[in-house]
Design a protein around this nucleic acid. Structure first.
Lengths: 157, 157
DNA sequence: AACGATTGACTTGTGTACAAGATAATTGCG
DNA sequence: CGCAATTATCTTGTACACAAGTCAATCGTT
């Protein structure tokens, strides 16, 4: 069904080659985008993007945090975080402030509006984690496998 | 360990709120980026990015394809594919050609150089799918779970 | 033939991601 | 103390991703 119309590629010969759907990396890539796209309409209502939402969750969990620590929590670097945090600040959800005791450090904290978002987000968002249609057991399996992949890939970057 | 230095956030009270690491969507997000980052050094040697590599795999599998069909195979839209395909074309790996029988259609096919890349990629790349450190059984489990997520999320966009 | 609707592709604008380079503040060592 | 190294952050440049809008070619119907 998928591809029609055109020739059929694999010209006989050797079949040492794998198909797209056999790659676990593709399954991972497709699933991640599907999930983000599922979150999007809900997060739109809250006025944040998916990575912005994750930053807020990290702030809810850890309180005021250095950019460095947010990067460690989310596995994101400054090149991604700095502009993202500026957008969150421009939207009034967080405050960014250089620390007086060490001018290199920037501390990110929630505004009243950012704090208020927590309750709304908590109602609207986690529903999706369950709406992925996995049983509780499958969710645990998936988390374990994903963490294992993450750890192993990081180990030998 | 992760976050230090700053206050500890969760101000007692209710614990109806989840931590970042409990979200399966975050595990998915982190794993996908870790895997792409693992692929990057290998793909750099081939001169392609990860999404570009997936397009090539689709072309190896299906032969010359319409942009529309590549989009269906990769779950990507024109806004992503058109510039990506132009970059692949600029790098000499694919050819893009309007079809004479229907001027709306653009057919993408491999150049000699793009075809030649297949063998190199096949040697260098799939090693990583195994280098994720999962057993064969876990790989199958993971693929099944990821596909289920993808299908369920797509079902109720 | 006429023409409104559909289709396939492209463009524009916003927001991630990440590499690589720049910079100011702090630290550590002789 | 003086200064080289380190640290935390920011900036620039490239490449996805996706929504929304544009446009030409084709189709369906009359």
């Amino acid at each position: 069904m998928a591809t029609t119309d055109t020739a059929d590629g694999a010209q006989g010969a050797e079949e040492e080659f794998r198909k797209l759907d056999e790659f676990i990396c593709f399954a991972l890539y497709a699933a991640q985008r599907a999930v983000i796209n599922g979150y999007r309409p809900l997060l739109d209502k809250l006025g944040v993007t998916y990575p912005q939402y994750l930053v807020l969750v990290a702030l809810y969990e850890n309180g005021p945090s250095l950019v460095k620590n947010l990067g460690a929590a989310l596995h994101l670097d400054y090149g991604t975080l700095t502009p993202l945090l500026k957008r969150l600040e421009a939207n009034g959800l967080v405050k960014r402030q250089r620390r007086a005791d060490d001018e290199r450090l920037v501390e990110v904290s929630l505004t009243a509006e950012g704090t208020a978002l927590r309750r709304k987000a908590n109602v609207v968002v986690p529903s999706l984690d369950e709406a992925m249609g996995l049983t509780a057991e499958e969710v645990e399996q998936a988390k374990a496998l994903l963490r294992k992949m993450t750890a192993n890939m990081a180990a030998q970057g």
